[in-house]
Design a protein around this nucleic acid. Structure first.
Length: 475
RNA sequence: CGGGGUGUAGCACAGUUGGCUAGUGCGCCGCGUUUGGGACGCGGAGGUCCCCAGUUCAAGUCUGGGCACCCCGACCA
């Protein structure tokens, strides 16, 4: 177990801190090929927790899990025009198999719309077959120029939902429901507040009519697109001929959605929480929620510690007793602080005799006295407090770093200063958006769904503008 | 794809005008003493010096070529 004594200060250099913490907390390490990462057990446990909780919500909506192939025949991939144009720059293609040049090249999926559509077109005949709601947990590959652990790797893990419906109204309901599930996961489990809204024409998914996004704000004021949910309209349905006969015997194309959340979520989680000492994991996502440290490696302390741990794990908590005898208490405390375990309990002679345990919150450092007799209840309460206060803290940060700009100068000043989210009127013209990006690095992040209509002028070009969009510098 | 940087033990690195058996710290293994905020002593294991070619009596060190990864920008979940 190698722990460096020094960690770059998060308060001074977030990016260096981020890289170091991913390695030191044993979340992941660099893979041998460019842009790849090895997700280590502690990091993968976070992903499994995301999977477990999100999978439940997805299934509760009547979506079924399935698995589609990694390889997509190039011709199939090329069917939907906008989709191809959007993805071809980052496509990896297999040209040789078994030592021979392939007559039909194989795209490695950057997302699975095309190959799933191919199945959908065969699965649907009648209105009775609809809706079809499929989800898959899979890896995808996007050949990124610039990569970053968890936040942008050439191969990443995700969940992608794909559904087809008889009406647009029903499909739109699915788009909203998927985003609602993500929002719940981010806010209630991962303690990551964010803004839900729709993407601009240039920022939306290649092949979608409408893209909804969950945008969260990282500590240095950059925005992270944390997941998306797309209304695909009938674009793929037409390209792949996914049609059905309705009740009156007419032939209609289906209405389609897709939505995904990736291991990028873990990157956001790391970025958003944490301090100079290391990671801070919200209790509901933490692989280990409580770590118990016997002060000395001797009986009856160990026995006592294990029985406290048993009580907690029987009550459903994720607990670990760290009784490594070759590591001093100080070293073990430090190790678990780096790994971001929400609560640690130190048990020594004093605690054993008095029955008063000492619990320390990772988020605030606050020491809380816990009576052995009410261990389970008090730990539950404490974990809830940590969860809530981590969310509140992040929410406060988001609010404090969301500013309104009413002139272009004001907008530029914010971008050269603290950054963060900027709310500003925008004309929704792509050329204007490009100009703003060029001049300030800020792109449109989203337009909240409930944004009221206003009568004003665009921040960038002065033309009439109806809505106040969120802007920010993207990751 | 542009700019910069780095490849030497698991990790971080040092290695002089080319020179003898390639080093230091951390980590790792063994034994002992330790353990209330990053313990210590003694003993030990561990090397394709990124790869290929060249110069030389001699290359970790010099030359040429290649590869890989990291960081900073443009593109992206």
């Amino acid at each position: 177990m190698a722990y460096n004594k020094t960690l770059p200060k998060r308060s001074e250099d977030l990016s260096q801190w981020y890289n170091a913490i991913v390695l030191q907390a044993e979340l992941a390490e660099y893979g041998p090929a460019k842009g790849t990462m090895i997700i280590r057990p502690y990091g993968y446990a976070i992903w499994e927790e995301i999977q477990r909780q999100l999978d439940q919500k997805i299934k509760a909506d009547g979506v079924e899990n399935a698995y589609f192939p990694l390889f997509i025949p190039e011709a199939l991939f090329n069917r939907e025009k906008e989709h191809v144009e959007g993805f071809s720059p980052e496509l990896a293609i297999v040209t040789i198999g078994g030592g021979e040049e392939l007559s039909e090249k194989l795209a490695i999926r950057p997302t699975s719309e095309t190959i799933i559509c191919e199945s959908f077109s065969r699965w649907v005949q009648s209105w009775r077959d609809l809706p079809i709601k499929i989800n898959q947990w899979a890896n995808v590959v996007r050949w990124e120029k610039r990569t970053y652990m968890f936040l942008r790797t050439s191969e990443f893990l995700w969940q992608e939902g794909h559904t087809i419906h008889a009406t647009h109204e029903e499909a739109w309901g699915m788009v909203l429901k998927a985003m609602e599930n993500y929002t719940t996961l981010y806010q209630e489990v991962m303690a990551m507040p964010g803004i839900v809204g729709r993407k601009s024409e240039t920022e939306k998914f290649a092949g979608a009519d409408v893209t909804l996004t969950y945008e969260s704000l990282m500590a240095e004021g950059k925005a992270l697109q944390s997941c998306t949910s797309h209304d695909l309209g009938q674009n793929f349905a037409r390209a792949f001929d996914i049609a059905f006969q309705d009740r009156t015997g007419g032939r209609q194309y289906v209405w389609q959605t897709s939505w995904g959340l990736s291991t990028r979520a873990i990157g956001g989680l790391i970025m958003l929480h944490g301090d100079d000492r290391g990671l801070k994991l919200p209790p509901r996502i933490a692989p280990i929620q409580v770590v118990i440290l016997p002060v000395r490696n001797e009986e009856p302390l160990l026995e006592f510690s294990r029985s406290a741990a048993d009580q907690l794990s029987q009550a459903g908590f994720r607990v670990k007793v760290d009784d490594r005898e070759d590591e001093s208490l100080g070293r073990r405390i430090n190790k678990w602080e780096v790994k971001g375990v929400p609560i640690r309990i130190e048990i020594g002679q004093r605690e054993m005799e008095s029955g008063d345990l000492k619990a320390v919150r990772r988020d605030t450092g606050e020491v809380v006295s816990i009576r052995l007799g009410s261990l389970v209840n008090q730990i539950q309460e404490l974990l809830d407090q940590v969860q809530n206060s981590m969310y509140a803290e992040a929410e406060r940060f988001l609010q404090e770093n969301t500013r309104e700009a009413n002139s272009y100068q004001e907008f530029k000043d914010i971008m050269t200063g603290p950054r963060g989210f900027i709310r500003a009127l925008w004309c929704e013209d792509a050329a204007c958006e490009a100009k703003i990006k060029e001049e300030t690095k800020a792109t449109t992040r989203c337009l909240p769904l409930d944004a009221p209509e206003e009568n004003g002028t665009c921040i960038g070009c002065g033309k009439p503008a109806k809505h106040r969009w969120y802007f920010g510098q993207a990751y």
